[in-house]
Structures are given as structure tokens and as C-alpha cells.
Design a binder for these strands. Structure first.
Length: 198
DNA sequence: TCATTAATTTGGC
DNA sequence: GCCAAATTAATGA
């Protein structure tokens, strides 16, 4: 957990529950809260001019959502949509900033998290700029697996559908399906019941 | 539960 | 890579 729930609660944090496909906030909205996922997962996406979805990020247990906007005055550049049943804690931004002032350790943790996200964003952008579909897909697999404690081969079950994988990598869904199958024959990953194990 | 919709997969271009 | 069609899974009335 990025910031302790009790601490967030003591600074005016309150919990909300969402079902899959619930919109938590929309592109262009003014950020009013700091959001942290307690359970479940949330995607940050953008719909481009062709109506295609680009998933910028997927956040799960313990991670915060667009926390950087607590510090600058801009509107959300993405939509946040629940992709599973989830509980989220919201803290008004002013109170959240006060929390960071009062609690040095929490401020450091948030700083660290922002730095990690930025670092991963660089890597993902480089992978997704590759002309090779397997490079893009493996990049995402590694990124997701990096949050898992279990690192042995094929131990990680990718919590993404083919469609979501396509929306993250910018590839076509058919390309994702065919590339993933090829990667299975090359023993990069395993497929069981349509799920990807990496 | 059944009907509808969404996701997945295959094949042709 | 794009489109269409067939199959399968998920959703919801």
C-alpha cells in the first residue's frame, strides 16, 4: 500500500466502491481528490480520434491514480475506469498535501512511487515504439510481472484480456493473438485456458 | 435461464 | 495490417 489507509482516512479520506466499467473520473475533469486503489484494478485510458482505446496504465492494489495531478493544476489527461470490482479511497487534494507536509515518510513514499512510474513509462514507450510486436508484448509482460513477488518462469498470470493487451501496445487484437501464440511456441510464455502465463 | 453483447480466434486479402 | 465470419465467454433482463 502506497500510503496507509488509516492515515488517509484521518485526513478526510473516504472509501468508494466501483463495479467494472464504472467511470471514476473523465478526461478534462478538474482533479479534486487524491485516489488510491485499495482492492481491484483501474485503467487509465484515452480514446483517440478514430475511436480506438489507448490504455496508458493499469493500476491495482495499493497504487495511486494520477497522483501527480495533486501537485500541478491541470485537468486529467485520461479517463479512469474500473476494470474489476474495486474499492478506492479518495482524499481531498488540499488535505492530502497537508498529510504529505505532516508525514515525511509518506511524502517520500509518494515521491518514490512517482519516480518509479516515470521510469517505467520511459521503458514502455521505448518498447511500444518497436516495430516488432513481440517486443511490445514482452515489454508489457515484464512490466506487469515486476509488481509480482513471485518471479519464477510462467508463474505470473497476466490479468489482461487480448483486447486490453492490444489497447496498451497499440497493436491490433489479431496481431496480439498471433504473436502471443508464436511466443508460446518459442517458450517465452505459456497459455492455459486463454490466460497468459509469463 | 435464455437472449444479447462482447471477446476471441481463424482465414482471406 | 485490415475485414469478415465463426466460435466462445460474459452479461443482464
Amino acid at each position: 500500500m502506497l500510503v496507509d489507509i488509516d492515515l488517509l482516512t484521518s485526513y478526510g479520506g473516504f472509501i468508494e466502491s466501483h463495479s467494472p466499467s464504472d467511470i471514476i473520473f473523465e478526461e478534462g475533469d478538474e482533479p479534486q481528490f487524491y485516489y488510491q486503489v485499495i482492492t481491484g484494478s483501474v485503467k487509465l485510458n484515452h480514446i483517440n480520434e478514430d475511436g480506438k482505446e489507448l490504455i496508458q496504465s493499469i493500476l491495482s492494489d495499493g497504487q495511486s491514480v494520477c497522483e501527480l495531478l495533486s501537485f500541478i493544476k491541470e485537468t486529467f489527461p485520461v479517463n479512469a475506469v474500473a476494470i474489476s470490482e474495486c474499492t478506492i479511497i479518495k482524499v481531498p487534494i488540499k488535505k492530502f498535501l497537508k498529510l504529505l507536509d505532516d508525514h515525511r515518510q509518506a511524502a517520500r513514499d509518494v515521491q518514490q512511487f512517482v519516480a518509479e512510474r516515470l521510469y517505467h513509462k520511459f521503458i514502455m514507450m521505448q518498447n511500444n515504439a518497436s516495430k516488432y510486436s513481440h517486443v511490445r508484448i514482452e515489454g508489457i509482460l515484464k512490466y506487469f510481472k515486476s509488481f509480482s513477488d513471485e518471479q519464477s518462469q510462467y508463474s505470473y498470470e497476466l490479468p489482461l484480456t487480448r483486447k486490453q493487451l492490444a489497447a496498451i501496445t497499440g497493436l491490433r487484437i489479431e496481431t496480439v493473438i498471433r504473436t502471443v501464440k508464436k511466443m508460446e511456441t518459442e517458450k517465452v510464455l505459456k497459455i492455459k485456458n486463454r490466460k497468459i502465463y509469463f
